[in-house]
Design a binder for these strands. Structure first.
Length: 484
RNA sequence: CGGGGCGUAGCGCAGUCUGGUAGCGCACCUCGUUCGGGACGAGGGGGUCGGAGGUUCGAAUCCUCUCGCCCCGACCA
């Protein structure tokens, strides 16, 4: 399957999932670990994550949040305090039963998410309405013992951030839930060039212990949906379970309203599957580890020309770095330029500069665009001034391509037959009654689930459920789609 | 846990049926020629054939037991 012996990836159209599996290894994003289900994130993949962290973190700070860090281990009993939460997470907990050579009195769960342990401490930190809101976030690893795993999309251990906030009123907490969903949607659009649909999860798809779960859903190039970030309103569920109470302005005791919101390394999967093509990754410039790669081209038997090319490549790289471009000069020996072109295309670098003796004589470079595949001649002394704008434009084109693709594959269905047919080709808006049993039946029969009740979209007014004929359970038509 | 497949060099595989010097491609190392879309030649290094037991003069190959991994299904950011 894998292996550099073979020249290209399996084409997306032939087997999308094979394409994905090969690409994550061939682009040096991940490697297998000795423990099944967990993966090593290699430097190129981790650099992507670091860029995601940097930009998202800035957005969290800008919305008033502070970072902190909670421990990895959580007493088992904490999970039992919230009925839905324990039911949702028990099956996938990894538990430490022995330590220091002895069996522990109380087993410790490796966090699958931190609501419980954070709730325990929030109860201590919140006494008065003056202590609220608490607006905290942590960057952490979590573990969920999944049966079927895939790099980035579903791994037993994954990296994420989890925001946990506590508020005096439901209104404030609901606002926070929505605000952070918008942060995710904005990040996806402005940094990853991924268009998303914002919506609410139905009861069955809601986070274990939440009153409301909001989601951003992105369409992959196989037209399946990927839940790419979630934001939950917990109501008083966790504050009652963990006794997060405070005295309000009237000196009356009240329960805090809490939220949590998370965004994980799964999003790297979204980037891969939203933008990638048969040649490999196409990375959004703002998150790409290298925005520009310079491939110097030598000439046979001419050390002097080679030296000049190398020197010019370095000079060019410096001038690009000075205008804030992340640039890499590929000076590796023993590989032909063609080999390097293919490699950087596979790795999704937005722009490639080819610089050889001919260019030096003409005072130009060849600038290759990963998205269009086109090459343009650009004067060397204009490269540094033009590249930032080209990267900006690259981002816009990438987003637009994804947006058009998505919009071309969203349909609307009036009948169940229509839903069954259209969901084979993309996402489908349809009216649903909201009955969980009906939802389950539809999933059995079509493999599609309700991804969300979109915050914007066709109204359900005057329509009835495509499956049961009952009145709509929601104000809008829901989105049915096959999902990761 | 059900169904399917596979363990032989770093990776991908052949060899197993029919027992007899452990091979191929890629990768790696050295030297030379190359370098504008996955270069070529010559030389070289690398293996307890997943593990244990058995049959045999002789086992990657046959027998028994075991361990592990991958793929498909039931749960999920």
């Amino acid at each position: 399957m894998r292996g550099m012996s073979k020249k290209g990836l399996t084409p997306q159209g032939e087997d999308f999932s094979a394409w994905y599996n090969e690409l994550v290894y061939e682009a040096d994003l991940v490697d297998l670990s000795p423990v099944r289900g967990s993966f090593v994130i290699r430097p190129y993949g981790y650099a992507l994550w670091e860029n995601i962290q940097r930009d998202l973190d800035a957005m969290f700070k800008a919305t008033g949040h502070e970072n902190l860090y909670f421990p990895l281990l959580i007493p088992m009993s904490f999970f039992e305090r919230e009925a839905d939460h324990v039911e949702g997470f028990s099956p996938e907990l990894a538990v430490v039963t022995h330590a220091g050579g002895k069996e522990l009195e109380e087993p410790l769960a490796i966090r699958p998410t931190s609501e419980t342990i954070i709730g325990e401490l929030y109860s201590k930190w919140v006494q008065s309405y003056r202590d609220l809101p608490l607006l905290y976030n942590q960057w952490a690893n979590v573990m969920r013992w999944e049966l079927r795993t895939r790099p980035f999309l579903r791994t037993t251990e994954f990296l994420w951030q989890e925001g946990h906030t506590a508020h005096a009123t439901a209104e404030e907490a609901l606002e926070e839930t929505r605000r952070m969903l918008d942060v995710y949607a904005t990040f996806a659009r402005d940094y990853a060039a991924i268009p998303v649909v914002e919506g609410e999860k139905t009861e069955g798809e809601r986070f274990a212990g939440a009153k409301q779960t909001l989601t951003i859903e992105a369409m992959m190039r196989d037209r399946k949906a990927l839940q790419s970030g979630t934001s939950h309103y917990m109501g008083e569920n966790f504050s009652r379970a963990f006794d997060i109470t405070f005295n309000d302005v009237n000196n009356e005791q009240a329960y805090a309203h809490t939220t949590s919101w998370g965004f994980s390394t799964r999003f790297i999967g979204a980037i891969i599957m939203t933008h990638g093509d048969d040649a490999g990754l196409i990375l959004p410039p703002k998150l790409a580890p290298h925005q520009v790669v310079i491939v110097p081209i030598s000439r046979r038997n001419d050390d002097e020309a080679t030296a000049r090319v190398t020197a010019e490549a370095q000079r060019l790289a410096t001038s690009l770095a000075e205008v804030g471009v992340r640039v890499k000069v590929d000076e590796r020996e023993g590989m032909s330029p063609g080999w390097k072109f293919n490699e950087w295309e596979r790795k999704g670098v937005p722009l490639r500069i080819e610089l050889g003796p001919k260019d030096l004589e003409a005072g130009t470079v060849l600038l290759a665009d990963r998205l269009s595949g086109e090459k343009d001649t650009v004067a060397i002394d204009q490269v540094a001034s033009r590249v930032p704008g080209l990267l900006e434009a690259f981002h816009e084109r990438l987003f637009e391509r994804a947006r058009v693709f998505r919009d071309e594959h969203i349909f609307e269905a009036e009948t169940y037959e229509e839903l069954k047919e259209k969901v084979e080709h993309g996402w489908v808006y349809a009216t649903h009654c909201g009955d969980p049993e009906s939802e389950a039946r539809i999933q059995e029969e079509t493999k599609a689930t309700v991804r969300c009740i979109p915050l914007e979209g066709p109204s359900a007014e005057g329509t009835v459920c495509v499956h049961t004929g009952k009145p709509s359970g929601y104000a809008r038509k829901v989105i049915f789609a096959k999902a990761y």
